[in-house]
Design a protein around this nucleic acid. Sequence first.
RNA 1: GUGAGAGUAGCUCAGCUGGUCAGAGCACUGGAUUGUGGAUCCAGGGGUCGCGGGUUCAAAUCCCGUCUCUCACCCCA
Length: 425
Amino acid sequence: MKRPPVKGTRDFYPPDMARRNWIIDGWKKVSLRNGFEEYDGPIFEYLKMFQLKSGDEIAEQLFSLTDRGGRELALRPEITPTMARMINQQINALPKPIKWFSVPRLFRAERPQKGRLREFFQWNVDIIGVDDVLADAEIIFTTIDYLSSVGLTPRDIRVKISSRKLLACALTNIGIREKQLDPLYGLLDKYNKIPADTFEKMLPDQVPDSAAAKKIMDLMSATTLSEVPEIAGTNAEVDAAIQKLARLKDLLEQMGVWQFCDFYPSIVRGLAYYTGVVFEVYEFAQELRAIGGGGRYDNLLQDFGGPSVAATGMGMGDCVLGILLEEKGLLEKQLQKCQLDYFIACADKQYFQKVIEITAKLRRTGKAANFAYKPIGLSKQLKQASAQGAKECIIIGSEIESGRLVVKDMATGEQKTTELDNLLK
RNA sequence: GUGAGAGUAGCUCAGCUGGUCAGAGCACUGGAUUGUGGAUCCAGGGGUCGCGGGUUCAAAUCCCGUCUCUCACCCCA
């Protein structure tokens, strides 16, 4: 009888687990070399924690439960609220800047589809306490550092960068009222996701003035910063926002990763809480949903009852990334199976006891060693050895009577006789 | 919540105008090979064709229902 895993969840068989570990180990390694420290929190929190940031409606998208004490809890759909809570608790004790990363297992009760599951892993990196685009540049650099470390190039992925602040003041200049901004962001976010003529038809619903609508169309298609004041006019606010983005570009150039990046005014991100630089990473053909994204959220800690502290960060899930790496053939190439140092075989079953003894001794010296449980023929044992990825195979035969055995290099096929005592040193 | 497609062996699928239709490849196990692996060859295990009902002499095949999955919309932290 088949018992598939719960909708939207995955079983990780050893090959899948190897894949998952490879991805997560890569995230951790890159985080550490970029100066981030790892943290984690509980896998469930008070339901209220998540509603605080995303509104009451979010409850429908969560797996929630009431415990026996009547507490309303939810499995975490993101780790940012937990991080905000933890940082707020120790804000005065933590050395600044705070550079933290985490790879939480997250849960969202949404309908699964390509690149989106109900249980997944997400890499988060955040810098707290730095009100400077240098921190945004660090976040983007770290993101690209990982993606290029697994073999993705500027021709595989694009980092699309924009600024909530720039968009806000440019739209205000065009004549959009502040109250209209939030609903308008929702539409602008679709600019690159729906056909151009569909977008153009939808725009007048929110921007009846055709001159303003025309300017928004121009703004959305801008590819350089200098076009923005030409389209939307200029003032001190616009200037300041442009200066910040220009500096971000300079920094990313100095860091040697700007070739991965583009200025994309239509990148908005769904969430209302972003306050400055925002970015999303897409594969080049843009047939998949975003691989990751992030931005500046200077008000979040305050929203969670803490002081006003600048913050910027990024999140990247394992689902879309996994699909992309698979498509590019980067997983197959870089994954190595469980590598044994030695597989110990016997040429005759009378030496089976020796196999067990020597295997155990090798293991105690720290070597990865395995052997066949059944006294099968030597050729079968060698077959197992190569199936298990053994680097060398030790063959125990009559030589063992004088303390010697055969060591066979599984890659080259070469073999030599050596003293048992040498091997165990 | 809405719409479309698909469910046959562990995996990928063929068979689907009803009648050797229970199959192939890969994987697995054993053998050829009782001191030499990755190859090849041979053999074997494994499926009440998602489930339930209907039509029929006869259903994997046609009809209805149901469940599950996938993809898209909504949403996307």
